[in-house]
Design a protein around this nucleic acid. Structure first.
Lengths: 95, 95
DNA sequence: TAAACAAGTTTATAAAATAAACCTAATTTA
DNA sequence: TAAATTAGGTTTATTTTATAAACTTGTTTA
């Protein structure tokens, strides 16, 4: 095998979008991710949870103006996984 | 949405491996792809067919030393799709 | 001539992706 | 002030995919 395996958790458009956004900000709110990714709320909720279960992100739930507020930030494991993914997929792109 | 959509046909490890290999050779035999990708024969057969159905590759069946020989080459549509995919996914990698 | 091998293909099953439906609480409107 | 609407998500139902195991067709070898 001359190709490196692609982490299945990151090899998904929406999850990769979320991680790509989180990598360059300190925190991001649910609605921010929603807008930037163009996802449905249901799908975003599911994928955020998968990233959290994997330990790639941390999720903080609070309230703001009486409404629920979900905030996400990437973890060290998430950063490492992303960097590894970037390197792996680069091997497929002939660049 | 700030991310470009990723062609689902190419956003798959094995199919992307095959296209990545075909992009830099004139032809490739089934067993060559098998070895380079590390796939099972069943999976490779299925994914080659999907790429063919999409018009991304051409598949030629012949015989060599009395045994079946399947040869693949990338099409113009395949080249374009690959280039488009490379550009799209690059937008996720912060490079 | 039976067993093993070559080169694939088909199919069965599990896993994943996604949108629709749902939920709870807050707010606005009639 | 009660009904309708909005905010912010979550759950679930369904369809698609991915993949390996099983199968096929023909060839070679013991």
């Amino acid at each position: 095998m001359i190709f490196k395996d692609l982490d299945p958790l990151l090899h998904n458009q929406l999850r990769l979008s979320v991680i790509s956004l989180l990598i360059s900000v300190e925190f991001a709110e649910f609605n921010f991710l929603l807008e930037k990714t163009g996802a449905t709320r249901g799908n975003l909720s599911v994928q955020i949870n998968k990233l959290k279960e994997a330990g790639y992100i941390e999720v903080t739930k609070s309230f703001r103006n009486n409404y629920p507020l979900t905030t996400c930030n990437i973890s060290n494991a998430g950063i490492e996984a992303f960097e590894k993914y970037v390197e792996a997929i680069s091997g497929y792109l002939n660049k």
